[in-house]
Simulated scan of single mutants.
Amino acid sequence: MLRNKGLTQAELSRLSGEGASKINEYSKGRILPSAVTAIALAEALDVSVPFLMLGRAGVADAAHSVPILDASRALPVSGHDLKLYTQQMTLDDHLLRQIGRQTTEGLIMVRAEGDAMAPVITDGAHVLIDRLDRRLREGVFAIRIGETMRIKRLRPVGVDGVELISDNAIYPPERFEGDLLAAFSIIGRALWTGTRL
């Protein structure tokens, strides 16, 4: 597959962020990558995860594809700014069943940045977000504060307030109440990042 893409193992290592020795082990079939690593490798090779892992060719079923949000740009208010969804990720039937869904309606994929939600959500991990589920309650959500996106545990507090909690204890909770809520909105509930949340 590397030859077909014109890549060396060293180049794939650089593109995927995976160590060169691991790339060698994967290519020889000695070990299998984790779900997060498989996604990174598939993206670097511009193939689907099923094709990478199982060698299954074919066109991805549009009903099982979700857009990947480029969160490095300003976030869309409505979710309809297609320039921000630059790639698609294919989900298999097993994952859809695991999260209790039959379709991908309202689902987007985002890439986590930083260690605030470690060890549950690691830096660079893909996180599946349900944009149809934006009701404030306890749980892990993708949120917008101004034009930036964050993934945090939310907990309603007081009459109209919300507390943002990081899983990494070095980051203190943040509270949004009153006028501060004007800059805060829920993008959607986090459903999966390698395992169901």
Score class of each variant (00 low, 15 high):
R101F: 02
D70V: 07
D92E: 07
G106C: 02
A74P: 13
L69N: 15
V77P: 10
I99M: 02
T104Q: 11
L69M: 15
I129S: 07
V127C: 07
V77I: 08
S78L: 10
K83H: 09
Q102D: 07
G114T: 05
R73L: 15
V120A: 09
T90A: 15
D70Q: 14
D92P: 12
R111N: 13
S78R: 12
A112E: 11
L91D: 01
I121W: 01
V110Y: 06
A116P: 00
V77K: 14
T103I: 06
A71T: 15
V120R: 04
Q98W: 02
R111H: 11
K83M: 11
T90Q: 13
V110W: 03
A125G: 09
L69S: 11
R101I: 08
T86E: 15
V110C: 10
A125F: 07
R101C: 01
Q87D: 10
S78W: 08
A118N: 12
T86Y: 15
S78Q: 11
T122E: 14
I108D: 12
H126Q: 13
L128I: 14
Y85C: 07
A125C: 13
Q98A: 14
P119Y: 13
G124P: 08
G114R: 05
I129L: 01
Q88Y: 10
G124C: 01
L107H: 07
H126T: 03
A125P: 08
L82G: 08
G114D: 13
H126E: 15
L95G: 02
M117Y: 02
S72H: 12
S78T: 13
I99S: 01
L95K: 10
D93E: 06
M109R: 03
G114P: 04
G106Y: 03
L84H: 07
D130P: 03
T104I: 10
L84W: 04
V110L: 12
